[in-house]
Amino acid sequence: MVRIESISKKFLEHGQVIQALQDVSFHVQRGQIYGLIGHSGAGKSTALRAINLLERPDSGQVLFNGENILTKSPEELRHLRQKIGMIFQHFNLLANRTVSENIALPLEIAGWKKEDIYKRVIECLELVHLTDKAQAYPAKLSGGQKQRVAIARSIANHPQVLLADEPTSALDPLTKGEILNCLAELNQKLGLTIVIASHEMKVIRKLCHRVTLFRGGRTEETLDVVNGQIHPQSAYGKIFVEDL
């Protein structure tokens, strides 16, 4: 479904060139929960954001359902993005829109009709168990609730894949579980493909089917998660797992 083929990306920061990604490849299959893991600065977030081209790689290919999306026009890219949901570490909800209005935003963008939007917003609220908060503003919600609103918003337009950028890193331990359960539920109920960038072992254990370990902008190794455990072969991988 998502195939990343040897992408590289350089950033210019304070006059210094930083190699954020170098020759990174991975392949996410339909229905899978795929983890991009590693320490902060390892490139996992950049790699995740390359999938919807929020970060455009300098070279390589980003294939979505077999099509290279790097060659698409801005207009085509916008339409494609409407089919790729995304959630963020800091939720990125609109503070001056209610929960319902936040969830409605991607549907307005995709050009849905008003009645349809209304119905779909309620469905999404039910999926994340927040029906009672429909008219609340984000400021009145807990961190976990905000992230659930963000999840509802990201799946509103029936995305083919959900990108999750450190979705639990800003939450306390109890709430982390709440969000992980929510994502696992969506994966099972809707068969939603999820790509998740995280440095948290809990995310890997409870959620991921397969993970790619990043180190200094490169991929160190790719592993299947078996019974909530990964068994890295590389020296770095072993240290990484022990650390967590």
């Binding site: 919807n52 929020l54 890219l77 916008r78 339409h79 494609l80 993005r81 409407q82 790729i84 949901g85 995304m86 963020f88 800091h90 939720f91 990125n92 909800l93 609109l94 503070a95 001056n96 829109r97 935003l105 991607p106 307005e108 963008i109 995709a110 337009n157 990108l163």
Partner: peptide, 24 residues
Amino acid sequence: GTVEAAQSMGASLRKIVFSVLLVE
């Protein structure tokens, strides 16, 4: 982040200005 979220939804520039920037 909110601008980025809107971009990830495939919002047009016009939509970003009127539904995100000016509202926020």
